[in-house]
Write a protein that binds this DNA or RNA. Sequence first.
DNA 1: AAGAATCCCAACCGCAAGTTG
DNA 2: GCAACTTGCGGTTGGGATTCT
Length: 316
Amino acid sequence: MGRPPCCDGNGLKKGPWTTEEDQKLTDYIDKQGRGSWRQLPKLAGLNRCGKSCRLRWTNYLRPDIKRGKFSHEEEQTILRLHSILGNKWAAITKHLPGRTDNEIKNFWNTHLRKKLVQMGCDPTTHQPRDDLLAALPQLIALANLGRLVDDHTARQLQSYAVQAAKLDYLKSLLQSAATIATSPSSSGSISTITTDLQWMGLLSASQSSSLSSLPSPRTMEGTDYQGLVTGQLPDIHIPGTGSSFFQQPITNGSIQNLGYTANSGDGETSFPALPDFSISNLVGACGTSGGDAEGNSSQLPIWSDSYFDQFMTELA
DNA sequence: AAGAATCCCAACCGCAAGTTG
DNA sequence: GCAACTTGCGGTTGGGATTCT
């Protein structure tokens, strides 16, 4: 059964608030303070339920509410906090003075969620979509078996597979790092990860030390997420090339230590250059959209729908 | 120009936790 | 300890505004 809705059957008004109602509510709270929301409508002369008054006040009339578009910084903060807290809008709101949970929730549902999806990330986990990675070996096997594609396309597929393997491997390294970071007993193991990355030529010594200073589990346990919110992992770039790891061209030879073999045969392949893809993008939340507030993002189209579409088009 | 489709956000609903008597 | 009441939270919806065809 449960308690009946507070506005039902009382002849109380619902729906959009008029300016007179807003004025009555504001005047009353200015003079008397908030007090009991239950009693407030009667005392303020409003034909509304207390709940409706509370929502109107907290989401719209409160004097300290910041109006207008979300700044790029606010957007970044929401993305990072959401990757940590999930849909805990009230908790996220505490880090954005002047914004309401309703406003942040709406902004997430109408903008940021779509943005993550477009970036090829799962909006719940903020991780790159595994389904696309998982499908690649089958696609490649299909292409090789059926001889449905020409050599050029086959090489492209192999190249994609290597890229996928790299991403997969890097992801596993990062997951290891994350596990270590949250396990107080394994503090020494982070060096193994950084050594591995260095061995792959992905991390300079200075970047290694930066990686080693990831937020400690103790910081995570407390209420202060600031270290993580503002923290930035180092970008991974190929030394001396000016390009990132995932832009590294696939050339002659094979890469077997990654679990895939890619023989590109006659030199450099011509698959579409993958965009800049840094470790900070991957960890910070597939989570951290680059680009500007207008949505001119510069990040992570890797495995995005359009990228996958292009891939499938070429396969076809 | 007009109708359809989509976007956006204020407001609602129901549940759960906290408080009070 | 318990029931009634209050408040806060997160998910969802309705409808106006905007964009597309």
